[in-house]
Amino acid sequence: EPLWIRPDAPSRCTWQLGRPASESPHHHTAPAKSPKILPDILKKIGDTPMVRINKIGKKFGLKCELLAKCEFFNAGGSVKDRISLRMIEDAERDGTLKPGDTIIEPTSGNTGIGLALAAAVRGYRCIIVMPEKMSSEKVDVLRALGAEIVRTPTNARFDSPESHVGVAWRLKNEIPNSHILDQYRNASNPLAHYDTTADEILQQCDGKLDMLVASVGTGGTITGIARKLKEKCPGCRIIGVDPEGSILAEPEELNQTEQTTYEVEGIGYDFIPTVLDRTVVDKWFKSNDEEAFTFARMLIAQEGLLCGGSAGSTVAVAVKAAQELQEGQRCVVILPDSVRNYMTKFLSDRWMLQKGFLKEEDLTEKKPWWWHLRVQELGLSAPLTVLPTITCGHTIEILREKGFDQAPVVDEAGVILGMVTLGNMLSSLLAGKVQPSDQVGKVIYKQFKQIRLTDTLGRLSHILEMDHFALVVHEQIQYHSTGKSSQRQMVFGVVTAIDLLNFVAAQERDQK
């Protein structure tokens, strides 16, 4: 057995438009009618409502009807409940999964919650491996369901041993009777949507819809739904939504950006999952974080739909894509998950301010006199920076000697690579993860907040409520011999709460 199987392995699926269902090699399930009293909570997966979006479509000038398939009504709160249950049931049916076995899954959280929910009911041990950027709410729900959680670096490539995929496979090879159901490759993922989600949409719309818009992560949702719609409703256009920084969209030119990270969760990847059939997507749109969270908040405030950030991405694209539809036509959007997962993220004004998705003037509360002053007023001194090749031991000596707790790590040209902190280095040394002679590049981390000289002290204040420091950066445009230009970030300084307090105190003292 291989040590790991690539999540982007070539698909062996034989589905073709027009091929009889009787030739399918898979076990198919028909939607079942729910009894009045459910035998367990797993029976509350599927049969989610279709809700008309009344205000947002009109606000953006849509002539067509805009409908939302509300997947956050599933038992675990997301569309991923469907595939989690289906993968477990299919693994039980073919004898792969037996009582007492362990389920391991690399996930952005929602599939993990679905699997942990099913594992709690069915009696399996469950280990979820997820990147650090995923919300604390997801972690809390997983723990409450009895799952064990392993976190991995957000910026690790999918084929790196440190990625959530790599760590999951390492655990599988170490733990007896453990299984990775593997949402990236498992046919049960798109089949769950082909058999149930798509049929529900067709039934709820009486077979009449002209466009379907869905955000894409593993691709199982859009693949399964689109294949069924292509068979039953061939005139329906399928629109895929991919965040900026991901590479799922086609044509490839759409993916060209210097951005590699994004805040919206559960969609987009740096590889093409095996289950994603991009041939059934008629057109791709890219979405960005700001519009995703703005539209998610709009869905909550104006439509009462308590959905997550990827739902915002989907609707932001839908109001663009559906401009081509006329009166009497219908566009369906998939709202994948609930706001429950993001209470401390985009639902929080403070978080939105820190990330730059909300401006101070958007909030009406009274601010102190210094709130709208610029960061450049602080008069920061030149920063202490270190090269990635310097040793951890030497870096600790320098920081202690100069009285700093942290320093930016830059390359020879001064471009920011990340940050090192005294606390992080000492804990890594004590844990045996690094040696004093190791290069400081081994303990770089990139989960820090950046701020510009033109940003306000109010925004800085919000950042420092949650973080010990902020890195002050400025952009530099560099022209190359080819005539092309590129933008790079340079370090201007490091600012802490002490710097802000000293500035405010000094100004008030001078005024007296």
Rank of each mutant, 00 (worst) to 15 (best):
269 Y>W: 01
484 K>T: 01
274 T>N: 06
369 W>T: 01
451 I>Y: 09
355 K>D: 03
240 G>V: 15
284 W>M: 01
443 V>I: 13
497 A>V: 10
279 T>V: 09
321 A>L: 14
434 V>E: 15
472 V>W: 09
329 Q>I: 03
503 F>M: 14
424 N>R: 15
404 F>P: 04
414 G>Q: 15
475 E>A: 05
446 K>Q: 15
316 A>F: 11
407 A>K: 01
294 T>N: 05
430 L>S: 11
325 L>P: 01
269 Y>R: 01
454 T>I: 11
296 A>I: 04
348 S>R: 14
509 R>L: 13
404 F>C: 06
388 P>T: 06
376 Q>L: 14
301 A>S: 04
287 S>W: 01
322 A>T: 05
383 P>M: 13
357 F>H: 09
470 A>Y: 01
416 I>R: 08
309 G>W: 01
412 E>A: 13
305 L>K: 06
444 I>Q: 09
448 F>V: 12
397 E>N: 14
498 I>E: 13
374 R>I: 14
415 V>G: 12
451 I>S: 01
452 R>A: 08
459 R>S: 06
305 L>W: 01
305 L>S: 01
305 L>D: 03
477 I>A: 13
405 D>W: 14
367 K>W: 13
270 D>P: 07
448 F>N: 15
328 G>L: 01
368 P>L: 14
418 G>M: 01
457 L>I: 11
281 V>S: 07
320 K>N: 13
405 D>R: 08
335 L>I: 01
333 V>L: 13
363 L>Y: 01
412 E>T: 12
420 V>W: 01
357 F>Y: 09
350 R>G: 12
344 T>L: 05
367 K>F: 13
443 V>N: 13
463 I>M: 13
284 W>D: 01
263 E>Y: 12
316 A>Y: 14
380 L>I: 08
263 E>C: 08
256 Q>M: 08
435 Q>D: 14
461 S>L: 12
322 A>C: 08
275 V>I: 08
490 M>F: 12
297 R>D: 01
292 A>S: 07
503 F>I: 01
383 P>V: 07
484 K>G: 09
304 G>C: 05
485 S>V: 04
509 R>F: 13
382 A>D: 01
374 R>Q: 05
336 P>R: 15
491 V>N: 15
254 L>G: 01
419 M>H: 04
388 P>D: 01
398 I>P: 01
262 Y>S: 01
477 I>Y: 15
431 A>Y: 06
465 E>G: 13
432 G>R: 09
398 I>T: 14
420 V>R: 01
500 L>A: 13
343 M>E: 01
332 V>S: 05
295 F>H: 04
369 W>S: 01
327 E>C: 14
441 G>V: 07
402 K>F: 08
418 G>R: 05
269 Y>Q: 03
478 Q>W: 11
480 H>W: 06
414 G>H: 05
482 T>K: 05
300 I>V: 06
355 K>V: 06
279 T>Q: 11
345 K>C: 04
373 L>K: 07
372 H>K: 01
253 E>G: 11
351 W>I: 01
452 R>E: 09
396 I>R: 05
367 K>M: 11
280 V>A: 10
505 A>W: 03
306 L>G: 05
406 Q>T: 10
487 Q>G: 11
349 D>N: 12
421 T>G: 01
257 T>N: 14
504 V>L: 07
447 Q>W: 10
400 R>G: 08
359 K>A: 08
409 V>M: 12
369 W>G: 13
278 R>D: 01
423 G>A: 07
302 Q>F: 09
386 V>N: 05
456 T>Q: 01
277 D>W: 01
499 D>R: 03
465 E>F: 05
238 I>G: 01
284 W>H: 01
390 I>F: 06
